[in-house]
Design a protein around this nucleic acid. Structure first.
Length: 417
RNA sequence: GUGGAUAUAGUUCAGUUGGUUAGAGCGCCAGAUUGUGGCUCUGGAGGUCGUGGGUUCAAGUCCCACUAUCCACCCCA
């Protein structure tokens, strides 16, 4: 136990961390271009926030939260999701009083107590964006566009964008009634799980993978046929904007999303290459959430994207993230005097922004050269008594093996071109 | 939470019907004559066989429990 990371968590070692840095860098670039500002919220919140924000009927709240009492007896929950904390901060600091919309993004760990499997961890990381205050479908499309842009820039172009509208409280109520009526006539044909879903959340039956249920739901009424005028228009607008951007999408009335707060737009971006947990990105509109949490009545739209799943998808598609470059220069030394000189010289070059490595392992010269090679150094020099004396070194190009004799003082300039 | 599979060096894996000092590739370290890497060759270090019980003269090998990992379901990123 002592030397084992807790179940469902992963260390990100240097052999992986460069990939994270690359993706995070790309995310920040894209968000900047789209005018989204970063928000960082705490790793834990008052439990009530998630109860209210995510919804008490959801699986997240019912069985997946990391909840505990702190030393003063307050109920605390590790960040289970990114949207409600962002909304909380938005309200707490009165950001709604600023010029709208408010466009935020975050990259954050998320904690859910689940049974781990491929693409599912107890601690995973999400990149998420939110637009608060804009009700236009162009905001929905902008949010989707950020996700699509990131994927495209990473070289992923075989992911499926699926969109749906889950309506608003008014039309969803009508739809649910119609759906329930329909399913009620076929109850005996449904699987046991779906008999429960029929009571709790009938829309979930549409999602069932059991053959007999699929057969039934093929004929089931579709939410898209029950949307009120407002919701229908919004959905049409969204499609218009997505078409304009040239994104291919599939209208999938089965997309329900597990969080209670969604209204109108719901969407997923799915990778078929990473096993059962294929949803890389999921999001939608939540026009009632800000008010629900205690803020003004303002609309919102956003998504969460799983970074681990993104990495899995990249791997499955054979897309390699560029490896970090090796040192510009490796300085090998012979003898104590040379070591002291090398140590200070390396530090000076580093101060000037050069990537310089030296040995700390008391290696022989030969071993230092091997080490330089392993580090993938671009250039190497050896400094011993002769070099200290003559102030000249042979600068070796590690790729070609060529050596050029130059003054020690010229090394920096030589490497910089 | 339900169901299934797996657990041997840092890593990927061998390990014969239970039978002496548990093996290999890769990686790591050191050498192959004097101050220069990559290729090759030679040698070396490194294992509580997941943990704890049990069966047996004898367990890496059989049985049980626990833990962890992987896979599917539920659900989600």
């Amino acid at each position: 136990m002592l030397t084992k990371a807790p179940r469902g968590t992963k260390d990100i070692l240097p052999s992986e961390s460069y990939k994270w840095q690359y993706i995070e860098g790309l995310i920040r670039e894209i968000c900047d271009v789209y005018g989204f500002k970063e928000i960082r919220t705490p790793g834990f919140e008052h439990t009530e926030l998630f109860l209210r924000g995510v919804g008490e009927s959801t699986d997240i709240v019912r069985k997946e939260m990391y909840t505990f009492n702190d030393r003063s007896g307050r109920s605390i929950t590790l960040k289970a999701e990114g949207t409600s904390p962002a909304v909380r901060a938005f309200i707490e600091y009165g950001l709604y009083a600023e010029t709208q919309p408010t466009k935020l993004y975050y990259i954050t760990p998320v904690y859910r107590y689940e049974k781990p499997q491929a693409g599912r961890l107890r601690e995973h990381h999400q990149f998420g964006v939110e637009i608060f205050g804009a009700k236009s479908a162009s905001a929905d499309a902008e949010v989707i566009s950020i996700a699509m842009t990131l994927l495209k820039k990473l070289g992923l172009n075989n992911l499926e964008l699926r969109i749906n509208s889950v309506g608003c409280p008014v039309c969803r109520k009508n739809y649910n009634r119609a759906l329930k009526e329909f399913l009620g006539q076929h109850l005996d044909e449904l699987c046991d799980d779906c008999k429960v879903r029929y009571e709790v959340n009938p829309m979930r039956v549409l999602d069932c993978k059991v053959e007999s249920c699929k057969r039934v739901t093929k004929e089931a009424p579709l939410i898209t046929d029950y949307l009120c005028d407002d919701c229908r228009n919004h959905f049409e607008e969204l499609k218009k904007y997505l078409d304009a951007l040239g994104y291919e999408y599939i209208v999938d009335p089965r997309i329900v999303r597990g969080l209670d707060y969604y209204t109108k737009t719901a969407f997923e971006i799915i990778s078929k290459d990473i096993g059962a947990q294929g949803t890389v990105c999921g999001g939608g509109r939540y026009d009632g959430l800000i008010e629900e949490i205690g803020g003004p009545s303002m609309p919102g739209v956003g998504f969460g994207m799983g970074i681990e799943r993104l990495l899995l998808t990249l791997e499955q598609n054979g897309i390699e993230i560029p490896k970090p470059e090796g040192p510009d220069l490796f300085i090998a030394y012979i003898g104590d005097e040379a070591k002291l000189f090398t140590f200070t010289f390396a530090n000076k070059l580093r101060f000037n922004g050069l990537k310089v490595e030296i040995d700390h392992m008391e290696r022989s010269l030969k071993a230092q050269m091997k080490y330089a090679n392993k580090l993938n150094a671009k250039f190497a020099v050896v400094i011993g008594e002769e070099e200290l004396e003559s102030k000249k070194v042979k600068l070796k190009n590690m790729a070609t093996g060529e050596e050029t004799e130059i003054l020690i003082d010229e090394i920096e300039k030589a490497i910089k071109n």
